[in-house]
Design a protein around this nucleic acid. Structure first.
Length: 879
DNA sequence: TTGTGAACGTA
DNA sequence: CGTACGTTCACAAT
């Protein structure tokens, strides 16, 4: 609101200002780690928040051009034809900028066939008529014509985007000698080179102003053109049509049909979480507080924003029997929340569409509700796994799990880090989940009760289902929900680890790494922190004067590959000692974290993140048991500490051999690769024989290594450059290898190409079982971004299908073990390997189940080969 | 105290 | 200039 008490409407030309920012800010300082350029976005937003903060508009909109095409190019094809195509790096930023503005709840306007300035002109005209003070912010001089007593133009000065010059009628007269309405007349005579509109030769601003002043208007001047003397008079007469055309084109449209009018553009509070999300993605940090400061947030306006469209039912507090009756009387899906404290149920809430009830968890509640919980009547649980585990600790095996909004939300958007029900309520219901403020000891706002959480979950479920394609629904029901149950059991079981073995090894490694460190310090005559890349750079590149290596963001790399290269070219004892030190300390860290993780039961219970990957794989945390070392001799001692537990007979490992290459064979239908797997011959030997044109018996280890690297590389979208690096061979030799490979296995190359092509069209990839992963960047003009997306898209169906197959095998095995009443249990999953703890006397039966269930998990055109090992510990079993 | 980047372990 | 993860440490910013 201005002093006059009138509302203020600010309209901004997003395109022209972002474009200026794009050239003003160095791209090096403004791109994300995955290569997205952000200089235009940053510059625009920076200016924008300053502007909002300074002007405090009550109404706000940003307009964008849709393309170069407009009614002006229709009338005059040469219009702006001299402008070079705007760089792809810039174009790619526009949709992201629009996302930012959307998150800030700023109205973004575009219209096919008109330019952003026409939208500004329309809004300015309407706004002035409706009693607004209007501020127009644009980098196009044509907008000067909009200036009136009610409309002020803010125009970026040459000094930079952040400096805006105010144009009022007075300042326009001062600068041009004519009122704003006449500016287009001047421009028409002078011409506008940047728009490819030639004017009258030899006529500049001075002459134009003089003429218009003299004749009162452009029309009058043109009518009296024959009265103008001299060379310029001749020029004018020769270019009358040009002038008329210029004047027609530089007139901004003031009656564009828009879906909104100024009154609709009232400034709304920003969506704080959405802004945080997109700024995190763009890696904007300093901008965040500035935006929050300049613009009101939802939190400031809780009353309006948090008022739910539908109020959650107030749950009835019921006694055990009544709660059991409550659920029994309600057929169909019931949503359920079990709150968990100390790993055990503490409270339970149930909800249906219009009613909710809950109870504090007691033995009575457990007994009364037990049969329903264990039964098959359908239930919806949000983030079910911890609740399933808690119930299991209470002696109840949950049955009938029909939906988990968290899992479903992840299946639909696997790239979004899962942040709980609140985000889903936000996204799918456009409401705010009531949350107690954790920073307040006595929160002002109450959080939702367990029953109310269930009620929200039920409603979210309806919305998610509506958006879920059948294929994704089948992955949820056919793979993820059964897997969830299995994972709960695996986490509860844990794996026995020998503290004695670990601590003995840890002590050994401690003395060893100290010893290595001392010798390393002797080599360089000083003590440094060998774990500090910064100090190492000093030692390597300054003190020892070794050649500079691969650049990183913060300096020069000192990673293992680089050190090995250095050792080749400039041997130095320090390098080798450093590598040894790294190895010893790394092992020690891993051992230490395992030791810390050991529970009172002498077992370690990892947590599997079911929604932790974008491909469908599981991940493991706290501790991560999916990256326990195996490559070198030392690491076997760590695996040897993973032992069979008391009361069990043996550990058994089962792994799929070359499952990703088998999926590749299946998906590509390559006859050579299919034959390789059906022949029973070692895969790489078979492929090597084909590629090098020799008998399988003549494939040397070197040849095998090469085709093996090539085969695995294919799955990741390897380039000749990458292959040459990995094999330490010439790029030309790598190219040769690739072309020989594809000459024999051409269908593989065709498949890979087509699958990316398909993903570009569909916008997502799909596994054999229908799991989808969206790839919005496949169409990005940013090459780095696009090519990264292409490799990921090429890999996703393969890695994802393998993950699907393993999950299916996993829960089939688990379910069969339970069904057959066996005590043996699956403990670990490491992507293509399972570790099973076998009860006495069950070895043969368990082996049969595993072989069968892993082998039958999917019907491919090639067999699924399973390798099984046995032993008292993971090292022996894994042989 | 918190966040980031380098390095490195696995499939 | 090879996909997918999680953990640790150092370091800088707070």
């Amino acid at each position: 609101m201005t002093d006059s008490g009138k509302p203020t409407l600010l309209v901004v030309d997003g395109h022209s200002l972002a474009y200026r920012a794009f050239f003003a800010l160095p791209v090096d300082n403004f791109s994300t780690k995955d290569g997205q350029h952000t200089n235009g976005i940053y510059g625009f937003l920076s200016m924008f928040v300053n502007l909002v903060k300074a002007e405090k508009p009550t109404h706000l909109a940003v307009a964008f051009d849709t393309s170069r095409h407009s009614f002006r190019t229709d009338e005059y094809p040469e219009y702006k034809a001299n402008r070079s195509e705007s760089p792809a790096e810039f174009k790619g930023q526009i949709p992201l900028l629009q996302d930012c503005l959307a998150a800030m709840n700023v109205q973004v306007l575009t219209k096919e066939g008109v330019e952003a300035d026409d939208i500004l002109a329309t809004l300015a005209t309407e706004g002035a008529a409706e009693g607004f003070d209007v501020l127009v912010c644009s980098g196009d001089r044509d907008t000067i014509q909009l200036v009136t007593e009610d409309v002020t133009l803010l125009y970026p000065s040459v000094q930079g985007v952040s400096q805006l010059k105010r144009y009022t009628p007075d300042s326009v007269v001062e600068k041009y000698g004519l009122p704003p309405a006449n500016y287009p007349d001047i421009a028409a005579l002078v011409g506008e080179t940047s728009d490819n509109l030639p004017g009258v030769p030899k006529v500049g601003e001075k002459t134009a102003v003089k003429w218009i002043t003299q004749w009162g208007s452009l029309d009058a001047l043109l009518e009296n053109a024959d009265k103008i003397t001299g060379v310029v008079g001749g020029n004018l007469r020769a270019h009358l049509d040009d002038v008329r055309r210029n004047r027609a084109l530089n007139a901004l449209l003031r009656d564009v049909e828009l879906p909104v009018e100024p009154a609709d553009l009232e400034v709304r509070p920003i969506d704080a979480q959405a802004v945080r999300d997109i700024f995190a993605r763009l890696e904007f940090r300093t901008l965040l507080p500035r935006v929050f400061e300049a613009m009101a947030t939802d939190a400031d306006d809780m009353a309006a924003a948090s008022a739910p469209a539908v109020a959650a039912p107030v749950p009835a507090e019921l006694a055990a029997d009544d709660l059991a009756t409550w659920v029994a009387e309600r057929p169909g899906e019931i949503a359920l929340t079990v709150t968990v404290e100390g790993g055990r149920p503490s409270r339970v809430g149930v909800a249906v569409a219009d009613a909710a009830a809950e109870a504090t968890w007691t033995d009575e509640v457990a007994a009364a509700l037990g049969p329903w919980l264990a039964g098959q009547s359908p239930k919806i649980l949000t983030d079910a796994k911890p609740q399933v585990k808690a119930l299991r600790r209470a002696g109840i095996r949950l049955g009938g799990l029909a939906f988990d909004p968290i899992l479903a939300g992840w299946l639909l958007r696997p790239s979004f880090p899962d942040k709980g029900l609140g985000d889903l309520v936000d996204r799918y219901l456009d409401e705010k989940l009531p949350e107690a403020d954790p920073t307040q000891l006595v929160p002002e706002t109450e959080g939702a009760t367990p029953a109310q959480l269930a009620w929200y979950a039920l409603r979210v479920t309806g919305e998610i289902r509506a958006e879920m394609p059948d294929s994704v629904a089948s992955v949820l029901e056919g793979i993820e929900l059964p897997t969830l149950d299995t994972l709960a059991d695996m986490e509860l079981a844990g794996v026995a680890i020998s503290h004695e073995k670990l601590s003995a090894f840890s002590a050994e490694l401690a003395t060893r790494s100290d010893d290595i460190a001392q010798r390393a310090f002797a080599e360089i005559d000083r003590e440094v922190n060998l774990g500090s890349p910064k100090q190492l750079q000093e030692v390597l590149f300054e003190q020892l004067q070794l050649p500079k290596t691969r650049k990183t963001k913060t300096g020069y790399s000192t990673d293992a590959a680089v050190l090995a290269d250095l050792q080749d070219s400039n041997p130095h004892p320090f390098l080798d000692l450093l590598l040894q030190h790294r190895e010893a300390t790394k092992l020690r860290q891993i051992i230490e974290s395992l030791d810390v993780s050991l529970g009172e039961d002498g077992r370690t219970h990892t947590t599997y993140l079911q929604t932790g990957s974008q491909t469908g794989r599981l991940s493991s945390t706290d501790p991560n048991l999916q990256n326990i070392p195996i490559r070198n001799e030392e690491s076997h001692r760590i695996r040897a500490a993973f032992e069979v537990g008391d009361g069990y007979e043996t550990l058994l490992t089962a792994d799929y051999s070359q499952i990703e290459m088998r999926i590749m064979a299946h998906l590509s239908g390559d006859s050579g690769l299919i034959e390789a797997f059906n022949s029973g011959e070692d895969l790489h030997r078979f492929v090597g024989a084909r590629v090098f044109g020799v008998d399988p018996s003549e494939v040397t280890p070197a040849m095998r290594t090469k085709v093996k690297a090539m085969s695995y590389g294919l799955v990741y979208g390897l380039s000749a450059f990458g292959l040459s690096k990995q094999l330490r061979i010439d790029q030309s030799e790598a190219k040769q290898l690739m072309s020989e490979y594809f000459a024999r296995f051409g269908a593989v190359r065709d498949y890979l190409r087509e699958s990316v092509q398909r993903a570009r069209i569909d916008g997502y990839t799909e596994t054999i079982f229908g799991r989808r992963r969206p790839f919005p960047d496949l169409g990005s003009p940013n090459r780095v971004l696009r090519e990264n997306a292409e490799r990921a898209a090429l890999n996703a169906p393969i890695q994802g299908s393998a993950a699907d197959i393993m999950k299916i095998a996993l829960f089939h095995i688990h379910d069969q073990l339970v069904e057959d009443g066996l005590r043996s249990r699956v403990l670990l999953q490491i992507h293509d390997e399972l570790v099973v703890e076998v009860a006495p006397g069950e070895t043969a039966a368990v082996e049969d189940i595993i072989r069968e269930r892993m082998g039958d998990a999917a019907e491919l055109t090639v067999p699924l080969d399973v390798h099984i090992g046995r032993g008292p510990n993971w090292d022996v079993a894994g042989h």
